[in-house]
Design a protein around this nucleic acid. Structure first.
Length: 473
DNA sequence: CTATGGCACGGATT
DNA sequence: AATCCGTGCCATAG
């Protein structure tokens, strides 16, 4: 400890270095991008190196040649995710000055994108060059509800590709957020949403049939007719209709700015993922691919010409130039440090939370920032900063705050949701607590009540299960 | 008497 | 140092 204070007092640069590294660490990629652009504009000692693209996936890369993802796909093992830094978006030269005039940091993150860009970015990594053109075509043909205004056949013909190719791209788009976007009709959008929802929950059995055959009745709220169509009671039909209106959205883009999901405990919307996780294959033991978005990473460097010019600097400018040079070198170094920290953190995190990444909330293991810090031999506050405000895109395209990975109660809450979804009759909190304990979740009865209200579930007493004893199939 | 929600305390987290 | 979260205790409603 004492040694450290001595060191820092001896070398003021080190303290500056530390301070800046930490402040960079807590920035999201969007904020970082702003910051770097500002630095580029004001500091002549900084420059951007050549922009490279991976020859296979066309992503911007740090060096010429294939990107890490394309170069080493098969060297990776399930428990060794590939983690790499990607300059990705915002990778553009800023010759003109970026317009930053006293913007508050909050406004940076709120950067609004239009729907096509937003969706396009989510699916880009899975597209080859040819498919990109198709995706671009589809995405620019969306109406304000997020539905297609062109037919797939038209697009296929226009690009001279088989229809199946276009369908494949459309499918990717539909499964991106907002779910169901890029469908040809409200009906199709509902079906896609239902399909994805079924992966985590169990909707009423006849829901799909209702959407496929009963759209007309549904939209006219003719529940009796709907029931007859499906061969179920009117009650049941009403239930299905309720489920659909609560959980699905026929016009994907309308829910875009708000919140698609029900339930009180929803995080704010994170438009820009800082970290993108995808799987290399569909196999269960697929290695994970983790892309850390770090704008201008690898391209930002100290201008060597400037460094040389410093020697011949006019005396009155020398000091200012030296200052710029130091600052530039510092920034570059700190950025490397930041990337390095993020890589190490995500590598470890992905190993620990692999099941969660692949299979959803129920499999998350409770983990504290302190634990992770200890494993990585860094200070807890380092992890805290690295996690703060960051958003991660999971392989299933959901964008979640990184902080959720440290939610101690998420797995218990999903177990609770599961129990309530499957209950035959309303269970009291005490009973639920007992059931949870049997699954290894030792929580107090009072806590069950808290989680229940968090999820917006009514108390047992008021939970009328219209699933009456006998319903016909 | 049972099921729940409110309040407050202590420990963990940030 | 400030804040969040799980829990116990107690009052209230049914």
């Amino acid at each position: 400890m004492l040694l450290q204070t001595q060191k820092t007092s001896l070398r003021p640069q080190t303290t500056a270095h530390l301070a800046q590294t930490m402040s960079l660490l807590e920035l999201t990629s969007a904020e970082l991008s702003q910051k770097i652009e500002a630095a580029l504009a004001s500091n002549p000692a900084l420059e951007l190196a050549e922009e490279h693209h991976c020859p296979y996936c066309r992503r911007p890369t740090l060096k010429a040649g294939p990107c890490p993802a394309c170069k080493t796909p098969h060297a990776a093992t399930p428990d060794q995710p590939i983690v790499f830094i990607s300059p990705r978006r915002d990778f553009r030269r800023t010759n003109g000055q970026p317009d930053i005039d006293g913007d508050a940091p909050e406004e940076w993150t709120a950067a609004v994108e239009d729907l096509p860009t937003y969706v396009g970015r989510q699916i880009a990594p899975e597209l080859n060059l040819e498919d990109r053109a198709l995706a671009a075509h589809l995405l620019t043909s969306l109406d304000e509800d997020g539905l297609l205004t062109v037919s797939l056949l038209e697009v296929a013909r226009y690009h001279h590709v088989p229809l199946s190719r276009v369908e494949h791209v459309q499918r990717l788009i539909q499964r991106a957020e907002p779910l169901g976007v890029g469908s040809c009709s409200p009906q199709e959008a509902l079906l896609v949403q239902l399909e994805v929802l079924s992966e985590t929950r169990t909707p009423p059995r006849e829901t799909e049939q209702a959407i496929r055959q009963g759209m007309d009745a549904l939209s006219r709220r003719a529940y009796g007719e709907l029931g007859r169509l499906l061969g179920v009671s009117t009650d049941k039909a009403v239930q299905i209709a309720e489920f659909i209106s609560e959980n699905l959205n026929p016009y994907p883009a309308r829910a875009y700015w708000g919140d698609i999901h029900q339930g009180a405990a929803q995080q704010p919307f994170y438009p820009e993922p800082d970290i993108i996780i995808s799987r290399l294959s569909e196999a269960e033991d697929t290695p994970l691919l983790i892309e850390i978005v770090s704008p201008y990473a690898g391209a930002l460097r100290v201008n060597t010409l400037f460094r040389q010019a410093l020697n011949e600097a006019p005396p009155e400018k020398a000091q200012a130039w030296q200052h710029d040079l130091d600052e530039a070198a510092l920034l570059v170094k700190c950025l490397q440090q930041r990337d390095n920290t993020l890589v190490r953190m995500m590598q470890r995190l992905a190993m620990l939370q692999r099941a969660y990444i692949l299979h959803g909330d129920a499999y998350i293991i409770p983990l504290t920032r302190a634990q992770l810090a200890q494993e990585l031999n860094v200070h807890e506050s380092t992890i805290s900063r690295a996690v703060a405000g960051k958003a991660v895109q999971l392989p299933n395209r959901k964008i979640v705050p990184l902080a959720r990975w440290f939610d101690r109660s998420l797995n218990v809450r999903t177990a609770l949701l599961q129990i309530i979804a499957e209950e035959k009759q309303p269970l009291s909190d005490t009973q639920i607590a007992r059931l949870l304990a049997r699954q290894g979740f030792d929580v107090a009865r009072r806590t069950v009540a808290k989680y229940r209200s968090m999820e917006g579930i009514l108390p047992a007493r008021l939970r009328h299960h219209s699933t009456k004893p006998n319903d016909h199939s």
